[in-house]
């Protein structure tokens, strides 16, 4: 693992204005969607749908606005570790709460 990290052929990938605009309109669309869906009463499902849409938006922001898609492998790898460390312990709290 050590050597390929330092052999940095980082190409300083530049994303064009056009891509940014496409992503931006996608984000606006999803915002509209989440507001619209919230007006329909789905009961329990409302929370999950809202979270799903938000996660789509978050993915767009991370992958394109935050460059993650074009990023150095090391940064991508560390990001996955951080997400796991974020969600697994927080999820484990509910082992307690759901069985009280």
């Amino acid at each position: 693992m050590g050597s390929h990290e330092q052999s940095h052929d980082h190409d300083h990938h530049i994303i064009g204005y056009g891509t940014h605009l496409v992503i931006y309109f996608g984000l606006l669309l999803l915002t509209g969607l989440t507001v619209a869906v919230a007006r329909v009463n789905l009961g329990e499902l409302n929370l999950w749908v809202a979270m799903l849409v938000a996660t789509f938006k978050a993915a767009l922001v991370i992958l394109y606005f935050m460059h993650m898609k074009y990023e150095h492998k090391l940064i991508q790898f560390l990001f996955v570790i951080a997400l796991l460390a974020l969600f697994l312990p927080y999820g484990a709290v509910f082992i307690d709460y759901l069985h009280r």
Binding site: A85, L88, P89, I95, D96, Y97, L98, H99, R100
Partner: peptide, 18 residues
């Protein structure tokens, strides 16, 4: 180490499953 913290809380009223 991230998944063992509740052993500090065995007497605090957390659920038996936990």
């Amino acid at each position: 180490g991230y998944f063992v913290w509740a052993h500090h809380m065995f007497t605090s009223g957390i659920s038996d499953v936990a």
